[in-house]
């Protein structure tokens, strides 16, 4: 699998965090686009073809779960990674697919709990891209 051929869309509202996340991914040679909110993410999703959408949960306007739902409609082939530090509205286990947010079930490709190790992150991503 050639990382350079893979495009990842990052949705994260905290600027510094987003920049670091992008940097880390680009270190591994992935092509990365980043947005600060769900609306922009959907815009890009409709324009470009992405392999992975990596989204934070709490963002202004649309939250991550809502973005995931809409992404599945707009670009169903995109693999979904949900990242979150937690919170009482979220029931999720690191590395699992299914989470429960605000009482409803959400299916992702993988859920990653912050803080996470980069080793985990990269191995998850590779697994998704290999399939």
């Amino acid at each position: 699998m050639n990382p350079a051929e893979k495009r990842i869309l990052v949705a994260e509202d905290e600027d510094a965090l987003r920049d670091m996340f992008v940097t880390v991914l680009e270190d591994e040679k992935y092509q990365v686009d980043s947005v600060a909110n769900g609306k922009d993410a959907l815009e890009l999703l409709s324009k470009n073809k992405y392999d992975i959408l990596a989204t934070d949960l709490y963002m202004p306007g649309m939250n991550g779960v809502e973005l995931i739902r809409q992404c599945k409609q707009v670009a169903p082939e995109v693999k979904i990674i949900l990242l979150s530090g937690g919170g009482k509205e979220l029931e999720a286990e690191h590395g699992k697919r299914c989470v429960r947010f605000q009482g409803e079930n959400v299916e992702t490709d993988i859920f990653i709990k912050k803080p996470y190790s980069l080793v985990d992150l990269f191995s998850f991503i590779e697994k998704l891209l290999d399939n």
């Binding site: 965090l17 670091m20 912050k114 980069l118």
Partner: peptide
Amino acid sequence: QAINLTAQR
């Protein structure tokens, strides 16, 4: 989280 990422990087 930022510190974590930065340090790992």
